[in-house]
Amino acid sequence: MSSKENMMKNKRKFDEFYSDIEDKIISFNKLNKDNYLVYENQMFCPDCRKAKLSYVFNTKTPHLKSKSGGKNPPHQESCPYGYKPASNNSVRNHIDALNNTQIEHKLASMMRYLLTDKSIRQTFLSDDTGQNNPMLIEAVAGATRTYNTMRRKSLGAYFTEEDKGEIYVFYGKGNLKLNDKGNYAFLKIVIGGKTISVHRPKNLIPNDIEENAEYYIVCIGYLKDSLFKIELLKSNCLKYQRV
Results as ranks from 00 to 15, higher is better:
Glu211Tyr: 00
Leu238Cys: 09
Phe159His: 04
Met150Gln: 06
Met1Tyr: 11
Phe124Lys: 02
Gly193Asn: 01
Lys84Cys: 00
Thr61Glu: 08
Ile137Cys: 00
Ile167Tyr: 06
Arg112Val: 07
Asp180His: 15
Ser119Tyr: 07
Lys67Asp: 02
Glu166Phe: 04
Gln131Glu: 15
Arg92Pro: 03
Asn203Pro: 04
Lys177Arg: 13
Asn183Thr: 07
Arg92His: 06
Lys164Cys: 09
Tyr216Ser: 14
Lys24Thr: 14
Glu16Thr: 12
Pro62Gly: 08
Asp127Gly: 06
Ser68Pro: 00
Gly192Asn: 12
Ser54His: 10
Leu227Glu: 06
Asn179Val: 11
Arg152Lys: 15
Asn207Ile: 12
Ser19Met: 11
Lys164Asn: 03
Arg12Ile: 14
Asn212Pro: 01
Ala143Asp: 14
Asn93Glu: 14
Met7Ile: 13
Ser19Gln: 10
Ile220Tyr: 02
Asn207Leu: 08
Tyr36Cys: 11
Gly156Val: 11
Asp34Phe: 08
Ala185Ser: 14
Ser226Ile: 08
Gly165Asp: 06
Asn99Trp: 02
Ala139Thr: 14
Cys48Gly: 10
Lys164Asp: 02
Met1His: 13
Lys153Gly: 08
Asn236Gln: 07
Asn183Met: 03
Leu37Lys: 14
Pro206Lys: 02
Met7His: 05
Arg121Gln: 15
Asp23Gln: 14
Cys45Pro: 02
Ser27Glu: 15
Gly70Tyr: 11
Ser226Asn: 12
Lys33Thr: 08
Asp163Met: 04
Ser68Lys: 11
Asn10Glu: 15
Thr116Glu: 12
Asn6Pro: 00
Cys237Asp: 03
Asn29Thr: 07
Tyr39Glu: 06
Lys194Asn: 04
Asn32Cys: 08
Lys4Thr: 14
Ile230Trp: 03
Glu231Val: 09
Ile26Gly: 03
Ala141Asp: 12
Gln76Ile: 07
Arg112Glu: 09
Ala143Cys: 04
Ile120Val: 13
Glu161Gly: 00
Phe186Trp: 08
Leu98Phe: 11
Asp225Gly: 05
Asn35Thr: 04
Val198His: 01
Ser66Pro: 03
Ser197Ala: 13
Ser197Cys: 05
Tyr39Ala: 11
Leu107Gly: 06
Phe159Asp: 03
Leu136Trp: 01
Leu187Ser: 07
Asn207His: 12
Lys239Met: 13
Asn236Val: 07
Thr146Leu: 02
Gly130Ser: 03
Ser54Ile: 10
Glu162Cys: 04
Asn93Thr: 10
Val56Tyr: 11
Tyr240Asp: 10
Ala51Trp: 00
